[in-house]
Amino acid sequence: MGKRRHLAFTISVAILFGVRTVSASARDFPCSDLRKAKAARLISILGTLPSELDFSHGTGCYSEDEDNPKQCDWKVAVDEDRNISDDRRLIVVDSEHMIGTGGWMDVLVLGCRAGKVTALFYDEFLYAVDVEEASADKLVLKFGKWVGSDPHCCPSMEERQVYVWSKDAQKYVLERDYSFPIAKP
């Protein structure tokens, strides 16, 4: 039970603090492999994500229980995978909670740094995210935002984040972040 509380705490911290960029490099992935390597292998370069899912074997099932590693608590699948430039690749990963409610979507932009494939952008979203635009210069993400007493199922707001590539910082930086109400049917 303590592990689940820790997971809930980690999820809360992830929601509060938002975007994280990571600089994990893969020793086994030279830049020449960026365009052709399988997404399931590429996501394994992240290791353990902030949600505590270990993407060590890419897609498939993962267990939350160390004593029962064959249990499929989370089902991980690649939702989107495309090259967004000659040296950048977008991968969106869907993690569905099979023994409870909820799910996560991870947005990852991989590129090259010092001759190795590296995560240039990474963020995790509760339930879903729409990648409205993705290029070497710009990334636009749209997702639900819960405010006040919104039920867990139904955020009342939609948030849009616009990131632009900073040549100086060598990463995507947040340019705009705005929210608007979701129209009620």
Results as ranks from 00 to 15, higher is better:
residue 23 S to K: 14
residue 13 V to A: 13
residue 34 L to I: 05
residue 86 D to C: 03
residue 177 D to H: 05
residue 14 A to C: 08
residue 150 D to V: 08
residue 90 L to Q: 03
residue 47 G to V: 06
residue 20 R to W: 09
residue 173 V to S: 02
residue 147 V to T: 07
residue 155 P to M: 05
residue 62 Y to L: 03
residue 64 E to V: 10
residue 69 P to N: 01
residue 132 E to P: 00
residue 117 V to I: 10
residue 14 A to N: 15
residue 171 K to Q: 12
residue 179 S to A: 08
residue 32 S to F: 06
residue 10 T to R: 12
residue 5 R to K: 14
residue 120 L to A: 04
residue 78 V to R: 05
residue 105 M to I: 02
residue 71 Q to T: 10
residue 182 I to H: 03
residue 56 S to G: 09
residue 15 I to G: 11
residue 8 A to W: 05
residue 106 D to Q: 11
residue 153 C to V: 08
residue 159 E to N: 11
residue 175 E to D: 14
residue 121 F to P: 02
residue 94 D to L: 13
residue 107 V to A: 02
residue 158 E to M: 12
residue 121 F to C: 00
residue 182 I to W: 00
residue 121 F to V: 00
residue 24 A to T: 15
residue 22 V to G: 10
residue 34 L to E: 02
residue 156 S to Q: 10
residue 87 D to L: 05
residue 31 C to R: 03
residue 134 A to G: 03
residue 148 G to R: 12
residue 143 F to V: 06
residue 34 L to S: 06
residue 111 G to E: 04
residue 178 Y to M: 06
residue 110 L to R: 04
residue 46 L to I: 09
residue 91 I to Y: 01
residue 144 G to W: 01
residue 38 K to E: 15
residue 1 M to D: 14
residue 12 S to C: 07
residue 116 K to T: 01
residue 169 A to M: 11
residue 161 Q to G: 02
residue 127 Y to H: 11
residue 172 Y to K: 00
residue 48 T to Y: 08
residue 127 Y to L: 13
residue 101 T to Q: 10
residue 79 D to P: 02
residue 110 L to Y: 08
residue 18 G to M: 06
residue 160 R to H: 04
residue 161 Q to F: 00
residue 123 D to E: 10
residue 54 D to T: 00
residue 57 H to Y: 10
residue 182 I to E: 12
residue 132 E to T: 10
residue 22 V to K: 08
residue 136 A to D: 05
residue 151 P to T: 07
residue 118 T to I: 03
residue 5 R to V: 13
residue 53 L to P: 01
residue 48 T to N: 14
residue 86 D to F: 04
residue 72 C to R: 09
residue 99 I to Y: 14
residue 59 T to A: 11
residue 154 C to V: 06
residue 181 P to I: 13
residue 7 L to H: 12
residue 55 F to R: 00
residue 18 G to R: 10
residue 46 L to Q: 07
residue 158 E to W: 02
residue 134 A to V: 01
residue 10 T to W: 01
residue 52 E to R: 14
residue 162 V to N: 04
residue 146 W to K: 05
residue 70 K to T: 11
residue 2 G to D: 15
residue 152 H to Y: 12
residue 70 K to N: 12
residue 2 G to F: 14
residue 80 E to Y: 05
residue 37 A to S: 12
residue 65 D to G: 08
residue 154 C to N: 07
residue 63 S to N: 11
residue 139 L to G: 02
residue 165 W to I: 02
residue 98 M to K: 15
residue 170 Q to T: 10
residue 35 R to F: 09
residue 4 R to V: 12
residue 134 A to H: 00
residue 47 G to Q: 09
residue 100 G to W: 08
residue 58 G to Q: 03
residue 110 L to P: 02
residue 159 E to Q: 15
residue 151 P to I: 07
residue 157 M to I: 04
residue 184 K to E: 14
residue 61 C to A: 09
residue 165 W to G: 03
residue 135 S to Y: 05
residue 135 S to G: 15
residue 139 L to S: 03
residue 170 Q to N: 13
residue 73 D to T: 13
